[in-house]
Simulated scan of single mutants.
Amino acid sequence: MKLNYRFIGYIGISAALLFGCGSTADIISTPIENIDTSPLKVTDLSDAEKKNWGHLDLERDTIPGMAVNRAYTEIIKGKKGKKTIVAVIDSGIDIDHEDLDDVIWTNKDEIPNNGKDDDNNGYIDDIHGWNFLGDAYNEQLEYVRILASGDTTNPDYNAAKAKYEEEYQLWMGRKTQYDQIAQAVKNADEALRKHLGKDNYTIEEVNAIKTEDPAVLQAVQIAQNVNANGIEMSDAVEEIEGIQEQINERLNYNLNKDFKGRTTKDD
């Protein structure tokens, strides 16, 4: 699972909370050699780009798509293809998609929708392959399934246990951190609204605050940190809650040894 791209920005917020108001701690900057030199998209996406972004290219279009258009014009242009059967091992595939017309593999040894395993391979009506997850949406990770099986004779059991313990501690740490950040941002927003006497305020109004109230000073520091990461306080709580949701899904489903998300018996 990939976290919201502002993850690093909110780490900065947590640092501000840990150091507290008025801290003189040094700011650690990212070494210049580690900064991505790829071009950045600095304008809003057009309607066409929003619909077609997956076909675009980071270098050519400054949009991190899959460079499908570039592949057609630079890699496979003028080349004659040959038939290749590709097995997709992923979360799913739309076999009715227009780009896949006449290219989806068909099992010629199976009679469609007759409820029988015509080719005797163990799967009934597997015309275009087989969905091993059934209607599952949330899933345990493979090493979690190995651990949940309790089969200590599995040669991968010890490695799965070590991986699980490492990942569980990592994500529990993130949960604790973001729960604290969420509460701090909510408290800061409430303090600023109360001090300014309005529900909607600008960063300019926050910067102009003159007070000796420690709670308000800390709220100002948090608001400035949030704004420095390109987000308004009014949106910060919602974004952080989105990150919390991702973290909770990781813990409640992917890393939950007791979760059973599959509706088939194909374990």
Score class of each variant (00 low, 15 high):
residue 260 K to L: 10
residue 229 N to Q: 14
residue 117 D to T: 09
residue 68 V to I: 15
residue 157 Y to I: 04
residue 252 N to Q: 12
residue 190 E to H: 11
residue 187 N to Q: 12
residue 174 R to F: 11
residue 148 A to K: 03
residue 58 L to K: 11
residue 25 A to Q: 12
residue 93 I to S: 07
residue 175 K to V: 01
residue 129 G to N: 03
residue 199 D to A: 07
residue 172 M to A: 02
residue 14 S to E: 12
residue 106 T to Y: 03
residue 14 S to T: 05
residue 210 K to A: 09
residue 108 K to S: 13
residue 109 D to P: 02
residue 7 F to G: 03
residue 184 A to C: 04
residue 141 L to K: 05
residue 173 G to W: 05
residue 156 D to I: 05
residue 17 L to R: 10
residue 206 V to G: 07
residue 69 N to M: 07
residue 21 C to G: 09
residue 150 G to S: 04
residue 56 L to R: 10
residue 215 A to F: 07
residue 232 E to I: 04
residue 161 K to N: 09
residue 170 L to Y: 13
residue 46 S to A: 02
residue 105 W to A: 14
residue 223 A to Q: 10
residue 186 K to P: 00
residue 227 N to S: 15
residue 76 I to Y: 10
residue 222 I to R: 06
residue 90 D to L: 08
residue 5 Y to D: 14
residue 39 P to E: 04
residue 166 E to C: 01
residue 188 A to D: 05
residue 10 Y to E: 00
residue 38 S to A: 13
residue 227 N to V: 06
residue 109 D to K: 14
residue 153 T to S: 15
residue 251 L to V: 03
residue 9 G to V: 07
residue 244 Q to A: 00
residue 82 K to T: 08
residue 129 G to M: 01
residue 72 Y to R: 09
residue 152 T to I: 01
residue 113 N to I: 01
residue 77 K to R: 11
residue 53 W to M: 11
residue 239 E to R: 06
residue 159 A to S: 15
residue 113 N to H: 11
residue 123 Y to I: 14
residue 71 A to L: 08
residue 10 Y to Q: 03
residue 159 A to M: 09
residue 159 A to E: 13
